[in-house]
Amino acid sequence: MDDMIAIILSKYNYWTVITLMMIGLYAMIVKNNLIKKIIGMNIFQTSIILFYVSMGMKKDATIPILEHHPGMQEHVYHAADYINPLPHVLMLTAIVVSVATLGVALSLALKVYDQYGTLEEDEINAKIRKASVKS
C-alpha cells in the first residue's frame, strides 16, 4: 500500500501531462471546427511545456535566482539549492514562439473562412468536392 502511494506521489505529475496531451490530440483529430483544433494544438503545446518544467523540479530547492548582496563576492553556490534553470530557458522561448505560431494559424483560419464562408471541416470538404466535380 505504501509503495502504491509512493509511486502515485512521484508520478502523478507526469500522468497529468499525458492526460492533457491526449485531450489536445483528441481535439486535433476529432473536432470539426478549425478554431477548436487550434485550441487543441495550444493545449498540446502547454502540456509539453509542463512536462519540461516538472523535469527540472528539485525537492527542497528554491527558485533559480541567486541570493546576492554586498559582501557575498566569495560565496560558493551549491547546485542542489536551486531549481534547474535550463528547462525554464528552453520553455520561455517556446511560449513566445507558440503565440507567434498561433497568430499564423489564426490568419490561415481567417483565409479559409474568406474562401469557403465556414470554419467547419466537413462543410469545407463538401465544397471542395463539389468544385472538383464541376471542373
Binding site: I49, V53, S54, G56, M57, A61, T62, I63, P64, I65, I83, P87, H88, M91, L92, I95, V96
Partner: peptide, 9 residues
C-alpha cells in the same frame, strides 16, 4: 513549481 520566469511569460 518554482519556474517564475516561465509563469510570468
Amino acid at each position: 513549481m518554482g519556474a517564475v520566469d516561465v509563469a510570468f511569460t
